[in-house]
Design a binder for these strands. Structure first.
Length: 857
RNA sequence: GCCCGGAUGGCGAAAUCGGCAGACGCAGCGGACUUAAAAUCCGCGGACCGCAAGGUUGUGGGGGUUCAAGUCCCCCUCUGGGCACCA
């Protein structure tokens, strides 16, 4: 036996390694221990969910923090008598597995499954209360077959479709990315990799179909952080405006001063071509002095075919736009344009406006065309200034200076706008839109910034898209009874670009289910955000082989009561999964319109002032912390060091401090457990003595605080601080516990409750102490302690007395002292009398139970 | 440029509704126990003046409201994050 082991064996020191190993083994032998009960249990259901991790192989501190929050909540809810669903799974498809395959020559599947095993072990080591019977692994066919099933359902409804478009291409990922996955023009996985634009034919999900509902739904989610709701609102980007058609004028291009003049409406012939613009300011139509088209606009393409100069301008602008977009600084691009040589007719005035192309007009927003109103739009102002285009002011604030451009609408009215002059802007918009609609050349309309979700990926490690291309029948979905389309094994993975699956003839060559002829399989795979868009439904019946999930089970458990994760998914995962929920509702699979009732986004884990990352070399390994201080102390520090929504600075000394605290509780319970066992279930004495009162008061104040915090504030840092304060009081009364001055019934009452209060935060140590107190049942099924308001109440009040707002003394009063008693006591205090001597008391503020303030002169 | 956070001791932080600023923890200092150390227990820690009692001052900066402001209002600085030519 080593010297250390000898020491350990003979004292009562807290040894987390021993305790945690012992309980981990017992818990592993009881897989039903965290099992949710059936709906028939009659208990209120509570679905607590943490975002599922990508199985990189190693948990990091961000995970530990996320799971410590969720686990504390799950345990608390259990103790509150709820039927809790607390599942975990693996977001197991994705690029790192392919990169690892190239680097280590390990098949992605093998690499991923191995990582899952080690991360699961880490999670179990942390003592997290997951019901592993519902584990979901997205890269397994029994899961991804339902991705395929959903894809086909969406295809049938026109919600999945194929189109050629300009897409974001990350050279490092060697695949395309959705708009949501491009951050500042760079890949979300490679923040130093500028995304290229490529023209490819791709599969899309029609998220725009639900744009309005996704927006409206945000108002039904008061328990989501405002920040997330705002980000989603901005991302969806609803814009109310109008479309307005400008007729293109025929004949030889009429050259004014190279397109810098507005020509009168006389004797014109129309070509039949129309330019439809989108504007939010139709009220400024009389101030339009040109029409601006995106260089990719179809009309421009037509004109450029017969106009080499224009062609050159277009190509140049496209090149600039591309470079700026790829540089991530589209806004910084200098405005640049060219006259097309064509004119279009303002439908309200009949005047002919020069048509320009401009590099700041986006082809993929609105109609790719605008009317330019330099007097009332900053960008148009800048553009007109550069090219000498006319400026016409049509909005002004009467009596004000009205420096151009006039952008505000406060108190503004239309001028020089025909019969609409004098109207306020908003009213003018309504009337002009109606007039345009009546005339057949426009209408009020709404544009969204949200685009359809591009889901094709030219990668191997993802869900195969279940579609076939038949020479005769066209695009044909794989029949349901042939699902899943299995991802073939032993595929050579390259970083060349192009789908690896295309290199596998056995996969590509198939038979058309319609005509029986030869067909080619789709070789792209699905974006992995598809996997995470609905995984939490699968948790409710993960073994179901006949449906993505059991309808009844989903109806019982949904919506998720509390979803917890990082804010980085605010417009990725969290918009996709809201979209998916709405689609599933329309498929009749569920009845809820939103996936999660409450959302909590925890702060980042920081070390030395920066987010932990390999490149900064400031990563703290959870395993190392657990090895040194135990899982309980590691988890608890993650809750103690900061409120959960704020960033957390990891300080190892702090973990040691939490560990010392746990040791203190452990020793205290050990030392007095005999007295507690002796008292058994005996009730508290009717009349606690003074020593007992002090201890009971602190205890019940603590229970009250933690209970209230779990119910709304979630400031676990102050909860843990409150238990520390309680323990400090208990340690101070140690002798009185030992001597019997505090009676065994009280000792039993106190010890049991201290253990219960710590149970959501330190499952291992509390399990050990609970057994030490003679309890055989698990803590999860033990009711959370109730607080006794009478015991929590202070017997004596300390009231600060201020003179002119400055603290002068503190007086002691009976707890129920009213205003007159406070007034009298304050005026009777000798220090107060000394301070006000020779002065006149002008005013006396007495706040019952709080303070007294004397205003003197 | 626009929209959100944040700024409090040497450090992480607390103060929930405008009412004793700094709970709790870390680090530090002093003491007890010990042959000694570790562990543990007790005590002291915003700054300045003072032997002390006590006083002055203090929550990024400047103004304001109030008997009373870390907290509310106005202006500014720094910092983290999100969005960014969306017509």
């Amino acid at each position: 036996m080593s010297a250390q082991a000898e020491t350990d064996a003979r004292d009562d020191r807290y040894q987390p390694a021993t305790i945690e190993a012992k309980w981990a083994e017992r818990w592993a032998a009881d897989p039903d221990m965290y099992a949710a009960e059936p709906a028939s249990s009659g208990k209120p259901k509570y679905y607590v969910l943490e975002m599922l991790p990508y199985p990189s192989g190693q948990l990091h501190m961000g995970h530990v923090r996320n799971y410590a929050i969720g686990d504390a909540l799950a345990r608390y809810k259990w103790m509150q008598g709820c039927n809790v669903l607390h599942p975990m799974g693996w977001d197991a498809f994705g690029l790192p597995a392919e990169n690892a395959a190239i680097k280590n020559n390990t098949p992605p599947r093998e690499w991923t499954i191995g990582n899952i095993a080690s991360m699961k072990q880490q999670m179990q080591r942390l003592g997290l209360s997951y019901d592993w019977r519902n584990e979901v692994t997205t890269c397994l066919p029994d899961y991804y077959r339902w991705n395929q099933w959903f894809f086909i359902r969406m295809f049938e409804r026109g919600l999945a479709y194929r189109k050629q478009s300009k897409v974001n291409w990350c050279p490092q990922c060697a695949t395309v990315l959705a708009n949501e996955q491009v951050v500042n023009g760079c890949c979300w996985r490679h923040d130093d990799q500028i995304v290229e634009l490529r023209n490819l034919e791709q599969w899309f999900f029609r998220t725009t179909e639900y744009a309005q509902e996704l927006l409206d739904g945000l108002d039904q989610l008061p328990n989501w952080p405002d920040k997330v709701r705002t980000m989603q609102r901005n991302w969806i980007g609803r814009s109310d405006g109008a479309e307005l058609a400008f007729e293109v004028v025929a004949g030889e291009p009429m050259q004014g001063d190279a397109g810098k003049e507005i020509l009168p409406a006389s004797g014109v012939t129309l070509t039949g071509d129309r330019i439809t613009v989108f504007t939010t300011r139709i009220d400024t139509i009389y101030g339009a002095t040109s029409v601006q088209l995106a260089p990719e606009h179809p009309l421009v393409t037509g004109w450029a075919a017969g106009d080499p100069t224009l062609r050159e301008h277009v190509d140049g602008m496209l090149e600039q736009q591309k470079a700026a977009r790829e540089g991530g600084d589209l806004a910084g691009l200098e405005k640049h344009g060219a006259f097309t040589g064509h004119y279009a007719q303002n439908p309200f005035t009949g005047e002919l406006l020069p048509v320009w192309i401009a590099n700041y007009i986006l082809a993929d927003y609105g109609t790719g065309a605008i009317m330019s109103v330099p007097a009332h739009d900053e960008r148009d102002w800048e553009f007109a200034g550069k090219y000498g285009l006319p400026v016409r002011q049509v909005v002004e604030v009467p009596g004000a200076e009205n420096a151009l451009p006039v952008l505000g609408e406060e108190g503004a009215v239309l001028v020089h706008s025909g019969k609409w002059s004098g109207l306020a802007c908003a009213e003018a918009r309504a009337q002009l839109s109606a007039e345009a609609a009546a005339g057949g050349y426009g209408r009020a309309t709404i544009t969204f910034r949200l685009k359809d979700w591009g889901v094709s990926r030219q990668r191997y490690w993802g869900t195969p898209i279940p579609m076939l291309y038949c020479g005769d029948c066209g695009i044909v979905p794989v029949p349901d009874d042939q699902l899943p389309v299995l991802l073939p094994e032993n595929v050579a993975i390259t970083q060349q670009g192009g789908s690896p699956l295309a290199q596998v003839p056995e996969f590509v060559n198939a038979t058309c289910p319609k005509c029986g002829g030869p067909a080619r399989r789709e070789t792209d795979t699905m974006d992995t955000f598809v996997d995470s868009s609905w995984y939490f439904y699968r948790y409710t019946s993960a073994k179901d082989s006949t449906a993505p999930f059991d309808k009844e089970a989903a109806k019982y458990w949904f919506p998720i009561d509390q979803y917890i994760g990082g804010v980085e998914h605010a417009i990725l995962h969290l918009i996709y999964s809201r979209f998916w929920t709405k689609v599933m509702r329309d498929l009749g699979l569920i009845t809820n319109a939103e996936p999660a009732e409450r959302l909590f986004t925890q702060g980042m884990v920081i070390k030395n002032g920066a987010k932990m990352s390999k490149s900064k070399g400031n990563v703290v390994s959870p395993d190392e912390m657990i090895g040194r201080y135990g899982a309980d102390a590691t988890r608890m520090y993650a809750l103690f060091a900061a409120p959960p929504d704020r960033d957390l600075e990891w300080q190892e000394d702090g973990v040691a401090g939490v560990s010392r605290f746990l040791a203190k509780v452990y020793r205290f319970v050990q030392r007095h457990s005999a007295a507690a066992l002796e008292a058994g279930d005996a009730a508290l004495p009717e009349q606690p003595n003074a020593d007992e009162q002090v201890v009971l008061r602190k205890l019940h104040q603590c229970i009250r605080k933690i209970t209230e915090d779990f119910n709304d504030r979630w400031h676990f840092n102050t909860c843990i601080a409150a238990i520390m304060e309680l323990q400090n009081v208990l340690t101070g009364a140690d002798e009185r516990f030992a001597s019997g001055a505090i009676r065994p019934e009280v000792t039993a009452h106190v010890l049991r409750r201290v253990v219960l209060l710590l149970a959501p935060f330190a499952p291992y140590m509390t399990a050990e102490l609970w057994a030490e107190l003679g309890e055989s049942g698990g803590l999860l099924r033990t009711p959370w302690p109730a607080f006794d308001e009478a015991l929590a109440k202070a017997s004596e009040l300390e009231v600060p007395v201020q003179i002119n707002g400055k603290l002068r003394t503190v007086i002691k009063l009976a707890a129920d002292a009213g205003e007159p008693a406070m007034r009298e006591a304050a005026l009777g205090d000798e220090r107060v009398l000394a301070a006000i001597e020779g002065k006149q008391v002008v005013k006396m503020i007495v706040v019952p139970g709080k303070l007294v303030n004397l205003v003197v002169r």
